[in-house]
Amino acid sequence: MPPKPLLHRDNPSAEPLVGNVKVTRDDWLNVAMDVLISDGVEQVKVLALAERMKVSRSSFYWYFKSRQDLLDALLKTWEQTNTAAMLARAEAPAEAITGAVLNVFHCIANPALFNTALDFAVRDWARRSGKVRSLLDRSDARRVEALTQMFLRYGYASLEAMTRAKVLYYMQLGYDMAEPNESYAHRLEMTPQYLKVFTGREPSAIELDEFSEFTRKHWDL
């Protein structure tokens, strides 16, 4: 899970705030996202966020019209990070389908690309909101379609491409939700086997070495 959000004022590398401004719009958004992930959407309340950041509630309205405006911004952030990242990785060039799937695995390896905890929080939110459920359904459809197109580019028949895309996507969601008690080293060791299951092809040593190097930047290996 990503670390707790650092407020702009507490970040020594950030530009100093001007005048009476105590926190930024991103501060409100990042703290709200942290609460959404840890406690659920019902706890994303303006007064509670203000108390957590030790600022006046009135400063919230410098940046947002209402609580609903903040909630809409959270959903927009989710789409612009998680969904956009998966689509981009599915469209990234690769010499073979195994390399293309490894590109998608970058979302798993790097939480800055794909925030799994945020995805689960939005899914929980969707159980309580028809609007969010519709948005989630559209997002899932876009992700699966991008993965289907990925398989199609490497010569898979239409039905097989769609099936493999769904297996890859929904297996990964379930895998992350299960939170298996295993090390990153074990997950990396199993990667060639997962690739064979997802693609029916053998990955190359070069592909595996490149992915291993990528994961070492983000995993404690």
Rank of each mutant, 00 (worst) to 15 (best):
M150Y: 01
R128H: 15
L208Y: 04
Q80D: 15
W78H: 04
P5D: 01
R89K: 14
R143I: 15
S13W: 10
E95C: 03
Y170K: 04
K22Q: 14
A185M: 11
R89V: 12
D124R: 10
M177V: 15
E210F: 07
D140I: 11
W78C: 00
S212W: 07
L29P: 04
R164A: 03
A100G: 01
D119R: 03
A73L: 05
R89W: 08
L113H: 04
W78K: 00
D69L: 04
N103L: 02
W219I: 08
T81F: 05
T81W: 03
L74Q: 06
F120T: 09
Y169K: 12
D209E: 15
S134I: 09
N110E: 14
A48M: 06
G200P: 05
E210N: 11
G19I: 13
R164E: 10
G155M: 08
K76Y: 14
F211V: 07
A85S: 15
T148H: 09
L159F: 13
A96D: 12
L147T: 02
T163N: 10
E91Q: 14
R123S: 13
D137H: 08
L188R: 07
P12C: 06
W62Y: 15
E179S: 11
E15G: 06
L113Y: 12
D72P: 06
K217I: 13
A90V: 09
T81L: 09
A73R: 09
E207K: 00
F214R: 05
R133F: 14
D124N: 14
Q43R: 12
S66M: 05
T148K: 06
N20K: 12
R25M: 14
D176P: 00
Q80M: 15
I108N: 01
F64K: 03
M162F: 13
W28N: 03
L102V: 06
A185H: 11
Q149N: 15
D124H: 11
E213G: 07
D69Y: 06
T163S: 08
T148C: 07
L36F: 02
K217D: 13
S183E: 12
G40E: 10
K196M: 15
A92W: 05
G130A: 15
E207M: 01
G200L: 08
R127K: 15
E210L: 11
L49R: 00
D72E: 14
M150P: 00
P12M: 06
F151Q: 01
A178G: 09
K76W: 13
A141E: 13
L118G: 00
T191H: 03
L17V: 08
D34T: 02
T148D: 08
D72I: 06
F198K: 01
R127E: 15
L49H: 00
D27Y: 08
N110L: 09
V144T: 09
T163F: 09
E51Y: 03
H106N: 10
L70V: 06
A157I: 13
G99P: 02
W219K: 02
L47V: 15
T148N: 04
